[in-house]
Write a protein that binds this DNA or RNA. Structure first.
Length: 218
DNA sequence: GGTGGGATTAGCT
DNA sequence: GCTAATCCCACCA
């Protein structure tokens, strides 16, 4: 199997698949499809402190080289290298110097795309999350990209992790719900594209005050 | 080799 | 509603 990843993370994806983790084929599809289908799935991080997890309730699609807001827009750079590697890899970047954002790489090697996980609903390890976030209210604990990474202890060292075979993974969860879409949040480029997806009437979606007004049914 | 700014958040007023 | 916190990349010289 050809290895498309940088040396530091190379062949991470050749490990045995994690039990319950969504298969690599799940991510090897159109970015918008993956963004929609990640809703309702369970994001899990197993650390030495214990397991913490949550249901994904909000995502955004970033469409690679055709998307001015995507970090791979300019093509292949050190930063964007992961985008051009295997699907199912975690892309973690630091934002505003303070917050980490977690993305899942989509599309086959050579094609760039990713899905930003913007919010989860806490499930397992809630006390761990309280400790990491230094907060003790479940509402507001994980309803934003920087909040959920802190709650699950996802940081720069997780960049390049394989969501199929590492301790950071996403598993299936059969559940029915309605999906809404809206413009993406907080970006200045291509800000009017409807690439944000979230579960209707879920309390753990971010920015629920003003943004849901502009949302549309799928 | 320097620098402008960003896929955010919490804690103010 | 406003703003500070604070890192690292991409871009320009």
């Amino acid at each position: 199997m050809k290895c498309y990843l940088p040396i530091s993370t190379s062949c991470e994806h050749n490990k045995l698949p994690k039990q319950d983790a969504l298969p690599r084929e799940f991510y090897n599809r159109d970015t918008k499809t993956v963004a929609k289908e990640l809703l309702g799935k369970i994001l899990v991080h197993e650390t030495s402190d214990g397991i913490s997890s949550g249901k994904i309730v909000e995502t955004e699609a970033y469409l690679g080289q055709i998307d001015p807001a995507c970090h791979a827009y300019a093509g292949y750079t050190n930063r964007s290298a992961l985008f051009f590697g295997s699907p199912g890899i975690a892309y973690v970047f630091i934002n505003y110097g303070i917050h980490y954002c977690l993305n899942a790489i989509t599309l086959p090697p050579g094609k760039a795309g990713c899905v930003l996980i913007r919010a989860i609903e806490p499930l397992e390890g809630i006390n761990l999350m309280f400790k990491r976030r230094k907060r003790h209210e479940i509402l507001g604990l994980t309803n934003g990209p920087g909040k959920l990474t802190k709650a699950l202890d996802i940081n720069k060292s997780c960049n390049g992790y394989d969501l199929v075979s590492s301790n950071l993974y996403i598993k299936d969860n059969n559940e029915k719900f309605k999906i809404l879409k809206s413009k993406r949040i907080g970006i200045t480029k291509a800000s009017n594209w409807y690439l944000r997806y979230f579960i209707k009437n879920n309390n753990f979606v971010s920015g629920s005050k003003s943004i849901n007004n502009e949302s549309k049914e799928l």
